[in-house]
């Protein structure tokens, strides 16, 4: 399917997981397509990067669940910052590990998983709904019970996929894209290149086969689909384009970017 067809399956008010990490292998072509629709009032779950910055700048966020938002080489995401400082959306700010275990819980159909993170920190103060759980064994340790981060839909980008939805990453880090897909009721995967299933073995080893077709609802071929974030080994981050994004007023940048033109 096309990126526009994929996002046509989404609706306002959904809880949407976005894969990648910071400014690394983000499904930017899908985010761009999403921004071309009128879909709004989203709760986004993301290890945040420009995906969050753009949705915030465009006023599409009702809420965000994240441990950080960064452009990596530009530590502070300017559009996210501006939106936060104007109180534009609700934030559930949790630790990086809590976030991962929340996805694991959802993928395993568990209501929560215990983590030794968050206690003593203001994560507990700013998320008054978080509960603790005490070990029933001799240690008696108290943990945070991280609730499942169940998603209505997930958007991720990988290097290769077949038409059935099997997905392959070829860079050094899978990030958490498999968990996003497993935690979601529907997952849309964009890829640099659609290949015949038999070609996976030529591209990478068995452990590079990250996504299984039974948790993928649609595949979009999108060469350069993570641009301007990195998509190793196909390409690195386009630092010039990222700098332009970070320094250009959003309406001006969006006019070019949403039309598919990128610097």
């Amino acid at each position: 399917m096309t990126a526009d067809e994929a996002v046509s399956r989404l609706e306002s008010g959904m809880t949407l997981g976005i894969g990648g990490w910071g400014s690394r292998r983000k499904p930017m072509e899908l985010v761009r397509a999403l921004l071309r629709t009128g879909i709004t009032d989203l709760t986004v779950v993301s290890y945040g990067g420009p995906d969050v910055g753009m949705l915030a700048a465009a006023g599409r966020l009702r809420a965000l669940v994240a441990p950080f938002v960064t452009l990596d080489s530009i530590p502070l995401e300017p559009h996210y910052r501006a939106a936060r400082e104007s109180g534009a959306f609700a934030l559930t700010e949790i630790d990086e590990a809590m976030f991962m275990w929340g996805l694991h819980a959802a993928a395993n159909r568990l209501p929560f998983l215990p983590v030794r993170a968050g206690l003593g920190s203001d994560v507990m103060r700013v998320n008054p709904g978080l509960r603790t759980v005490t070990s029933p064994y001799e240690d008696g340790e108290t943990f945070v019970a991280v609730p499942a981060l169940r998603l209505d839909a997930a958007l991720v980008h990988v290097n290769r996929a077949d038409r059935q939805g099997n997905g392959q990453y070829l860079g050094p880090d899978p990030y958490f894209d498999d968990l996003f897909c497993e935690a979601a009721d529907a997952a849309y995967v964009s890829c640099e290149r659609i290949v015949e299933t038999a070609e996976f073995a030529k591209e990478g080893p068995p452990q590079s086969l990250l996504l299984k077709r039974n948790v993928v609802s649609g595949v979009v071929e999108a060469p350069g689909g993570a641009h301007f974030t990195s998509c190793a080994p196909d390409y690195g981050r386009d630092e010039d384009a990222q700098r332009a994004y970070a320094t250009t007023p959003w309406p001006e940048f969006a006019a070019e970017y949403l039309a598919g033109r990128t610097t």
């Binding site: 950080f68 530590p75 630790d95 030794r116 993170a117 920190s121 203001d122």
Partner: peptide
């Protein structure tokens, strides 16, 4: 104030899990 910060910075990142482990 966290609810409406004067300056938004990175976020908690992994600081909570780091310091407890």
């Amino acid at each position: 104030d966290w609810e409406r910060p004067k300056r938004q910075l990175l976020g908690v990142r992994g600081a909570p899990v780091n310091t407890l482990n």
